[in-house]
Simulated scan of single mutants.
Amino acid sequence: MKVFVLDPHMIYRRGLTSCLGDAEGIDAVAEAGSVGDAWVHPDLPESTVVVLDHGLPGGLEFIRQVREATGAQVLVCSSRSEEGEVVAAVAAGSMGYVCKDTLTPESLVAAVRAAASGAGVMEPGMLGTLLRGISRASEEVLEPRGLSLTRLNPREQQVLRLVAEGHPIREVAEQLRYSERTIKNVIHDVVTKLNVRTRSQAVARAVREGLI
């Protein structure tokens, strides 16, 4: 696996590069400090994952374009976790969003590996932020027009959102006033519908594809 780090702050960028360069399974790490430098870097087209702070000038557009141009997965690593920032990054095509303030060498490497495999990467707190943003877009823009972001029915959406926020089956059942067996059946239906194997995979795919 080859990783490309794009961040305007040299010290932080070098720190990310050093952590990733020492990790097993990562063959090479390249870096750039600006979008312009990234586009002309010879290693960008061969990169499996691009790690970047989308707050740099042209960052969001870069996410959109680099996936189309190279097929690389994008992992956003930012100090900002506002709802609009998270939703914008995912909408642009990022496979994940991690916070600089809580990042460790181990969690960085794990996130890069997950992104490389096509799995969505999101810290629990940010996941809730993303879900609220998507929900607001649905309520304010789509629902008044009779449209929907998802092929999941309302009950499936409710259950999956609560599961995504970290609630166990018992709490989901209590909040929605269903039996635990009903909640398990709903989750089973969602897992089958999304063609995944586990509830965690269902949550990751639903968030990545804007289904909840």
Score class of each variant (00 low, 15 high):
41 H>Q: 10
16 L>Q: 01
50 V>M: 12
39 W>V: 11
79 S>L: 08
81 S>G: 04
78 S>P: 03
79 S>I: 05
45 P>V: 14
26 I>V: 12
44 L>K: 04
12 Y>D: 11
60 L>R: 14
71 G>M: 07
78 S>W: 04
84 G>M: 07
79 S>P: 00
57 P>K: 08
92 A>V: 08
21 G>D: 10
70 T>E: 05
68 E>N: 03
75 L>S: 06
35 V>R: 14
88 A>F: 10
66 V>R: 03
79 S>Y: 05
80 R>D: 07
35 V>F: 12
73 Q>W: 00
35 V>Y: 11
39 W>L: 15
89 A>Q: 12
27 D>P: 00
86 V>G: 03
35 V>C: 15
29 V>I: 05
41 H>A: 13
57 P>R: 07
45 P>A: 13
73 Q>I: 00
87 V>S: 07
75 L>N: 06
57 P>W: 03
43 D>R: 11
45 P>Y: 15
12 Y>N: 09
37 D>S: 13
20 L>W: 00
40 V>I: 12
84 G>L: 09
60 L>K: 08
48 T>W: 02
72 A>D: 09
20 L>F: 02
52 L>E: 07
27 D>Q: 09
44 L>A: 06
41 H>R: 08
39 W>C: 05
49 V>F: 12
45 P>F: 15
77 C>N: 08
20 L>H: 01
66 V>F: 10
36 G>M: 15
20 L>S: 00
31 E>Q: 14
47 S>I: 01
68 E>Y: 11
92 A>K: 06
91 A>T: 05
15 G>R: 14
56 L>V: 12
94 S>C: 14
78 S>I: 04
38 A>F: 09
77 C>M: 07
37 D>A: 13
88 A>Q: 13
81 S>D: 15
52 L>S: 01
81 S>N: 11
86 V>R: 02
39 W>R: 15
32 A>R: 00
53 D>Q: 08
49 V>T: 12
28 A>T: 04
83 E>R: 14
86 V>T: 07
89 A>E: 11
64 R>P: 03
77 C>R: 01
31 E>W: 03
51 V>H: 03
40 V>C: 06
72 A>T: 11
67 R>P: 00
30 A>Y: 03
13 R>N: 14
39 W>F: 12
76 V>Q: 07
74 V>H: 04
22 D>G: 02
67 R>M: 05
